[in-house]
Design a protein around this nucleic acid. Structure first.
Lengths: 211, 211
DNA sequence: TCGTAAACGGAGTGAAAACTCCGTATTGTC
DNA sequence: GACAATACGGAGTTTTCACTCCGTTTACGA
């Protein structure tokens, strides 16, 4: 998944790599993704050379953070799948929102579509949704793309509010889940097709989001 | 509201000002706010000097766009207030989402809290919400901060998906409104206080959002 | 039509930030 | 303990981009 393909890292290099990732998360959360790499290096207590030896570009550094979030997301989806009674979907949404709240820094780059792990997560979410329907936890006309939109929306709340305050995303998730509950009427508009979602490349950045 | 305090603009200057605003909207939508001002000037067909004579900084240009969106938002809220039967809130949410979808470029800077017009809009929204409650269109435990979160969430969807496709935000708004509908149970978590919302300064940019 | 105040274009400037280079230091193996 | 191989720091390079300056042009009242 990461750039290092060959032999294991020397111990100091491995330690600095972790430091850099941790520092990058903090700096990007505090200043946004336009924070300078020099700031990240300083926060990590290493030199620029070290940063660039480990991550060939700023984009690669961000991508490593994104990959971490996505791996955690997939893990949470797998764990939620073991929840009985069709409550896995809700559990997953809460768990991943909570995790994202702690990693706000790289969120703008997380839910673009280029990343392999996103497709893995999406398949798992589809199963969670199906299970929730079997147990009549959610309305019949709910689709996986609705869940995708819900995740984008939580990201919007987290990015605006910062990840500090759990109340904020919890209350918003309450509202979303209330909207997902079974109801007599269908949602007024047609669901968004998966193809439409796939076509989106996250336009608010000019460059493709994974380096 | 705008920087020009004195005499009216000469005709060519006024024309170029409009061109610049239109071009800025398009360029920022296509490339994000980190697009260069040179690109904006080129798209508008004017020189750098003209841009900077009209808008003293890039931030001021963005702020002019933001002000336009907020003025439209206030106008839409006022219009929605005339809707009978407590449907004004839903009408407003749909109208403002539709408008924002056409002005995705500057959205990242719109819903920070520093702008005077935001408070105006918020007061209008509070009245729309109260009216919706009187007519039992929404649940009793819904608060104005919930609407604020809903607007942030729509912004998240629009920013990710781009403003091009109305289906996307409509379907998401369907879900939100379904969650707002009257129900037997209360939402699990406590509502977010207005003070908490006011404390947020939109952290994903380091600088304060209005120049 | 003429004069002037206002506006125009766009090359030039300075700062900021991504990325490189290389002399020095550290790790881990024989 | 010595010696490669690997990693380290941080000053220097290059590029990008916001912003300025000034000679030329345009609008518009008299």
């Amino acid at each position: 998944m990461l750039v290092e393909g060959d032999r294991p890292l020397r111990s100091d290099a491995a330690k600095n790599r972790e430091r850099l990732l941790r520092a990058a998360g903090q700096v990007f959360e505090a200043q946004g993704l336009e924070a300078s790499v020099a700031d990240v290096a300083r926060a990590a207590g290493v030199g620029m050379g070290t940063l660039y030896r480990r991550f060939p570009s700023k984009d690669a550094l961000i991508d490593a953070l994104v990959t971490g979030v996505l791996e955690a997301t997939v893990a949470m989806a797998e764990e939620a799948a073991e929840q009985p009674d069709g409550l896995g979907l809700e559990k997953f949404l809460a768990a991943s929102a909570s995790y994202e709240a702690e990693h706000v820094g790289c969120l703008p780059k997380v839910w673009c579509n280029d990343h392999e792990l996103i497709h893995v997560a999406r398949r798992l979410i589809a199963r969670l949704l199906a299970d929730a329907k079997v147990h009549h936890r959610v309305r019949e006309d709910l689709t996986t793309t609705d869940i995708t939109l819900a995740k984008w929306s939580i990201r919007g709340v987290l990015e605006t509010a910062g990840g500090t305050n759990p109340q904020i995303w919890q209350r918003h998730l309450d509202l979303l889940i209330a909207g997902m509950r079974p109801a007599g009427d269908k949602l007024p508009h047609r669901p968004v097709s998966q193809a439409q979602v796939d076509r989106i490349r996250y336009s608010s950045q000019a460059d493709p989001c994974v380096s």
